[in-house]
């Protein structure tokens, strides 16, 4: 029983929840007033868009790639959201659907030409940024009323973000970790040769994951404008790095298709809270990004320790 409780596998899967608990307790200790509906709402305000962006990144990481353009893409979606989606909803829908298809096509291109995903997605980030500037040359616009209403809806007991995060995490968990095709998709990251030999289409899997990433990117942009109600092209550029950090914090491995949707959402929330935590500690904003790097390194170091103890047990 005790050996089960200290099994590296369990410890590893509990690490994201553990990091979140630590940072939440630290915040409550420093600022007890945060322990209220209003306080939580403020703290978690921007968690949902970041969680969606993190899930988008997770989809790409599942197939052993990395998306360095997701932040610019979310910015583009936000710009479309506050202009076309508000003025001509049908056109807005079509543009967003087309952008999801474009993401899928990017996955196909990366796979078929065997290109480095970092370069292609980084190049595409210029395209998204340029498109965003064309759609919305100066900051402004207006989010559709229904999006704002949904994002600012006051749910009973705890803020909406918490319900939404739980729901998304569970849905994606079931889809990727509990379904048959989900196993194939993760297998593409783990061992593409054997997936291909089992006569699954690798290119279809890549398109699926990239299109899913595009879908979550759209969700991230739309939920973001629901909170900010206006947008500009650069609104979400920092999401690229945040999303990668979120996936890794949440227990995702960088290669091998080992990912955890629940962990990714927890990781995104942890990172959202990290900013507030640092300002409660009166750490200068200069160190905000640095602290994210430090948190990432600490969590990865902990994971290495757990993995080593596992290796020792096996040996």
């Amino acid at each position: 029983m005790i050996s089960q409780l200290t099994s590296p596998r369990l410890l590893r899967s509990l690490l994201p929840a553990f990091s979140l608990t630590v940072i939440l307790l630290a915040i409550f200790y420093l600022q007890p007033r945060a322990m209220s509906y209003f306080g939580l709402n403020l703290l978690l305000n921007l968690a949902l868009p970041i969680a969606f962006a993190t899930l988008a990144q997770m989809c790409v990481i599942t197939v052993n790639d990395l998306d360095l353009g997701i932040g610019a893409f979310v910015g583009f979606v936000a710009c479309v959201g506050v202009t076309w989606l508000n003025d001509q909803p049908l056109l807005g829908f079509l543009v967003l659907a087309a952008s999801i298809l474009a993401y899928g096509a990017m996955g196909a291109l990366i796979h078929l030409r065997n290109l480095p995903s970092i370069v292609v997605t980084l190049g595409m980030s210029f395209v998204w940024l340029g498109l965003a500037l064309l759609v919305l040359p100066t900051p402004g616009g207006k989010a559709p009323a229904i999006v704002t209403a949904v994002m600012k809806f006051k749910t009973p007991f705890v803020p909406m973000t918490i319900y939404a995060s739980i729901a998304i995490a569970l849905i994606v968990h079931v889809a990727l970790k509990r379904s048959a095709y989900g196993a194939v998709l993760r297998g593409v990251g783990g061992n593409p040769q054997s997936v291909a030999r089992a006569s699954w289409s690798l290119v279809r899997a890549k398109i699926t994951m990239y299109a899913l990433a595009g879908f979550f990117g759209v969700m991230s942009g739309i939920s973001l404008i629901g909170l900010t109600s206006a947008a500009d092209a650069n609104i979400a550029l920092r999401y690229t790095l945040l999303s990668i950090a979120g996936v890794i914090l949440g227990g995702g491995e960088f290669v091998g298709g080992r990912i955890s949707p629940i962990g990714a959402v927890l990781g995104a929330i942890t990172l959202t809270l990290a900013g507030s935590f640092l300002s409660f500690l009166r750490i200068s904003p200069d160190w905000q990004i640095g602290a994210q790097g430090a948190i990432l390194i600490i969590v990865l170091a902990l994971r290495t320790v757990i993995n080593r103890s596992e290796a020792r047990k096996l040996a």
Partner: peptide, 26 residues
């Protein structure tokens, strides 16, 4: 060209060149 078009073309041309030049055979 406007800043937006410039960015789009820069990105598209870089991706295009890499597709043409950088692809390694499977």
């Amino acid at each position: 060209l406007s800043a937006g078009v410039r960015l789009i073309l820069t990105g598209a041309i870089i991706v295009g060149v890499i597709v043409l030049a950088g692809g390694r055979k499977n």
